[in-house]
Write a protein that binds this DNA or RNA. Structure first.
Lengths: 208, 208
DNA sequence: ACTATTAATAAACAGTTTGTTCATTATTTA
DNA sequence: TAAATAATGAACAAACTGTTTATTAATAGT
């Protein structure tokens, strides 16, 4: 699926440009960033940029797709996914959901890019794409199974999905924006508790 | 606080430019939109644009702030807010939260702009600002009160906040993106149920 | 209805940025 | 070491920006 080019110069140039993009997005909005900005920061000739990317959007897209492919890869580890019959016995309050910890580890590895792309200067289209990838995986798949007999649900299943996925992304964003103080394991557990609780059951000793 | 200018020409020009912005954002990313695009679409001389806005970012910001002010206004209707003592008796499953229905009505009035600004071509900085406004209101204030004695919470309160607010925004986005099929009242009820439930209690007849 | 005021227009300006091309130099692979 | 390929620097027209100018048009207040 991929391996055609491996010339050191190409690899070096592309990496320099991607790093420059991440670096510049900490300072400016994407649309304020010019190709000149990128090549100056990357210490690359401007013409060279066009040898590898059509324009700055192409650079952004390729960077995004690389990350999304990584998330997809985690997602597709089906062995670790919960099955319907596990649901009643799985201890959501004390064990993080199987694939979620891996996801946070991956995010941590790519923290710089993830933080800017999901931040205030980021790309909302990336949010959408990430949600799409996440919606076919993780706790989402559990929620979907929960809603298999949709007639029984008191809210439309699509609203339940949107709600749950956005919530998960919210936790991811908060974790990134606060400097990833918790370990991937810890934040996974927090997420698991949030998903499978409601405001009342979030207490150690429920009052009602 | 405001009323200085009211010349018909100014009002007409500004409205034309704002409408043009909304219209163009259905087709292009904000950064792909040029001042020329805007003035052509608005049928306005390009020079006139600079009589009212410093640049296209200024136009975007002013449009955003107008909307945010509207949300703020709803938020500040304290009379309608739930108090702590209402919590145990309020029927979350069958009554929408007080201010939320009003919020959805307001969103519906500004549906065109809200849909593009919160959509894939929108502005993530606006997401952040909207979250900030929402976090000081709505169900969020309830969640905050729930967490007053934070020692009892099994998740950090800031994660609970991020989770809940993002979730609410997710519902708003889904509602807008699916053409607002539900009435403001209906979608408010859906949101209320989602907030105060968990995957299990979302069933009419809980199985566990 | 008149007039002084203010907004909108059209046209022109230099300065950036863009995307492309070219001949030349440097690096890499095998 | 040689052949292949990537990077460079320079130059180009085209598009967009932000500003200015003189001129025309619309408006508010009387």
């Amino acid at each position: 699926m991929k391996e055609p080019v491996l010339d050191r110069r190409i690899v070096k140039t592309k990496k320099a440009l991607r790093d420059a993009l991440t670096s510049l997005m900490k300072e400016k909005t994407f649309d304020e960033i010019t190709v000149s900005d990128l090549t100056v920061r990357a210490d690359i000739n401007r013409g060279t940029f066009y040898l590898h990317y059509r324009d700055k959007y192409d650079l952004l897209q390729q960077s995004e797709e690389e990350i999304l492919a990584g998330v997809q890869k985690i997602r597709s580890k089906k062995k670790k996914m919960l099955k319907k019959e596990d649901l009643p016995v799985f201890d959501f309050m004390n064990k993080p959901l199987p694939l979620v910890a891996e996801l946070f580890e991956y995010l941590q590895e790519h923290a710089e890019f993830m933080t800017v792309i999901l931040g205030p200067r980021g790309n909302p289209a990336f949010h959408v794409k990430l949600k799409e990838v996440m919606s076919s995986t993780m706790a989402q798949s559990i929620l979907a199974r929960l809603g298999e007999d949709q007639e029984e649900l008191i809210v439309p299943i699509d609203y339940l999905s949107s709600y749950a996925i956005s919530a998960q992304l919210g936790v991811i964003q908060h974790w990134l924006n606060t400097g990833m103080k918790e370990s991937p394991m810890e934040v996974s557990l927090i997420l698991s508790r949030l998903i499978f609780s409601n405001p009342v059951t979030l207490y150690k000793h429920p009052k009602t």
